[in-house]
Amino acid sequence: MADLKMNVSCFFFIQVLLLLFLSSFAPTNAQGLKVGFYDKTCSKAEAIVKKSVSDAMKNDPTIGAPLLRMFFHDCFVRGCEGSVLLELNNKKDEKNAAPNLSLRGFEVIDNVKAAVEKECPGVVSCSDVLALVARDAVVALDGPSWGVETGRRDGRVTNINEARSNLPSPLNNITSLISQFDSKGLDKKDLAVLSGGHTVGQGHCPLILNRLYNFTGKGDSDPDLDTEYAATLRKRCKPTDTTTALEMDPGSFKTFDESYFKLVSQRRGFFQSDAALLNNQETKSYVLKQTKSYGSSFSKDFGVSMVKMGRIGVLTGKAGEVRKKCRMVN
């Protein structure tokens, strides 16, 4: 009996050791991140970023949404390590992938980084600048604030093909969206919450022409799109339009609020990926909850999901580098 007890004890001890051993190889993306990472090494960093974003948005009130979008596009490719900012002479960088050609605000990131570098040379990473800028842009749009975890370091690789294959498309259905978010450690609620970022900013006609004119190849429109809204969009987006930009949240596209979810619930989501949220019970329930003034949790949820997204594939410790300029490796 004593031998049996000893064997059982040894078995559980070995199991614990095995779990600890395996966990040391698990993708603990958030390890090394914390709110206030630069409190001692660059105490003015976050204040400098905030002021720089405020100045940028005074000059261009529409730049807030693109700055938020840039952080999303960075995190979904190689993780939140600033690869979307890098430029290669051969144009094979992420910036030149089709989903990123409409990104803008890179000069704002350059200016923020330069201001931080002047105060604390070689301390604050470009990837942390992106994370802080995204938060401050949302706040400037009357949206919520959250504690941004910092401590990321910058990657040295950028690849156009990785951007093509990793960035969710506005044409995706709900199955594809859930799968892509799941591959980054984000769940269905995160999908619905982060899609709410479309409450600010603009979308371009080329991405919805199929919804308006030839959805199934028979010259029809998307049946998931409200007919009156489709007619309104057709007046603005002609079949050959490749440039026109429209508000994704008409009448409220400069204010970060819950109105996006009301539009989606009315089948007036701008992209197919917006409409797709109604095709899954969990994402649909979240959308409908946010349309009730007494039940909306969007502001709080957005900060939580942004922190979660900000942990994807980060480089910390001695990995990567702290770039001096965000467009090039040191």
Rank of each mutant, 00 (worst) to 15 (best):
L212Y: 10
Y213I: 07
Y213L: 08
F215S: 12
T216P: 01
T216I: 01
D220C: 05
S221F: 11
D222H: 13
L225I: 10
L225T: 09
E228M: 07
E228F: 08
E228N: 14
Y229A: 11
A231M: 04
L233M: 12
R234L: 03
R234H: 05
K235V: 11
R236A: 15
R236N: 14
C237E: 05
T242K: 14
L246W: 00
L246H: 04
M248F: 02
P250G: 04
P250Q: 04
G251E: 04
G251M: 01
K254G: 14
F256K: 03
D257G: 04
D257A: 06
E258T: 13
E258P: 02
E258Y: 01
Y260M: 14
F261S: 07
K262R: 14
L263G: 09
S265M: 02
S265I: 01
R267K: 15
R268H: 11
G269H: 10
F270Y: 15
F271D: 13
S273G: 11
A275F: 11
A275E: 13
A276D: 12
L277T: 10
L278K: 12
N279L: 13
N279I: 07
N280A: 04
N280S: 08
S285Y: 06
S285A: 15
V287Q: 00
V287K: 04
Q290A: 08
Q290Y: 00
T291E: 05
K292P: 10
S296D: 00
S299C: 06
S299W: 02
D301L: 02
G303N: 02
V304C: 02
S305C: 10
M306D: 07
V307Q: 15
M309N: 09
G310C: 06
R311P: 01
I312A: 05
G313S: 07
V314L: 02
V314M: 06
L315V: 03
L315Q: 03
L315K: 11
T316P: 00
